[in-house]
Simulated scan of single mutants.
Amino acid sequence: MSELDSQTAYWDSVAATKTFTHPLHQPWLEPVGRDAAVLDYGCGYGRTVDALARQGFHDLSGVDTSPGMIARARALRPAVRFDVLAAPPALDRPDASVDLVVLFAVLTCVPDGGAQRRLIGEVGRVLRPGGLLYVSDLLLQDDARNQERYARFAELHGTHGVFETSDGAVCRHHTEEWLSSLLAAFEAVGSRRITVATMNGHAATGMQFLVRKALG
């Protein structure tokens, strides 16, 4: 992954202050055994891991590119294994060793399409056959503020939907079709639109996907 696709310095600088809000959809989790091996890729400060623990999951781990975020996560849930990704998207996990991967608001932090595909491929490697991938991310927004910044940064970054935030992050919003194409190697289980607050406090439309790795 390029420096733009991990932005470690930025995430370290905001590790103590940012709040993430993408919700877990309880009906999607009900069939999953509470002894499932669950990995939160791009776990940030561990908010989603904490929510999963409160729902009874106990074989939990998280990874992130930001040492600052990982330090905050370890303070929140000291009994959970949290690791810094040394060479993203590579995971220090064996093939087919994870039952559920959670990928919440991670693709928005990885502007390059090729890097996104490599990330999804690595997640697929560690998932067991029949394992689940739960993705939550942001769609292209239709309000004037977002439309203006998509247009302003499109030439600089080469992709419509890639933009820079006022505090220095480079992010990406997506079409539903693009997100679906990233997950085409998996079997679709469910999808839903959501409204969430962004990390800078704006209401935004997002999309959640639950997909399954094929059994054979």
Rank of each mutant, 00 (worst) to 15 (best):
T108A: 10
L132Y: 03
M1T: 06
A51P: 02
K213L: 08
P88W: 01
H22R: 10
A86T: 11
R117T: 09
A144E: 04
V32R: 01
N200P: 02
L210D: 00
R81L: 10
G113P: 08
K213H: 05
D40Y: 12
A36F: 03
K213I: 07
P88R: 06
G62M: 06
V98N: 00
G44K: 07
P31M: 04
V162I: 07
G216K: 14
R125H: 06
D50V: 09
V110I: 15
I194Q: 12
V189G: 09
P89V: 02
L119C: 00
T159D: 05
R149Q: 09
V32I: 14
N146Y: 15
Y10G: 05
I194F: 07
L4H: 09
W178M: 05
A188H: 05
G68N: 03
E187V: 11
P94N: 13
V123M: 10
Q147K: 10
S97R: 00
Q116T: 05
H58R: 12
D112G: 11
T165Q: 08
A115E: 12
A169N: 14
D167E: 11
T21Q: 12
A154T: 12
G121W: 07
D12S: 08
I120T: 15
F153T: 04
P67Q: 03
R145W: 10
E3P: 09
P78K: 10
R172P: 01
E3S: 05
P94H: 12
Y10M: 14
D59W: 09
M207S: 15
L4A: 12
V126W: 01
V162T: 14
M1P: 05
L139E: 01
G130S: 14
R72G: 11
V102Q: 05
T165L: 15
H22V: 15
D137M: 13
T175S: 02
P78L: 00
L156Q: 12
A37R: 09
G46Y: 13
G124S: 08
G56T: 07
M1A: 03
H160N: 13
G33V: 15
V211T: 03
P94Y: 10
L24H: 06
V162N: 06
G190D: 12
V135K: 15
C171H: 08
T175F: 00
Q208G: 04
D95K: 15
M207L: 15
D5C: 01
R149E: 01
A9W: 11
T159F: 05
V14Y: 05
R81Y: 01
G130H: 06
L103C: 11
T19Y: 13
L107P: 09
A214K: 15
I70M: 03
R128F: 09
L133V: 10
T17C: 10
G130W: 14
L156A: 12
G130Q: 12
L179D: 15
A79C: 13
T198V: 09
G121M: 03
E30N: 04
G121E: 08
A86W: 05
A90L: 07
R72D: 07
L24G: 00
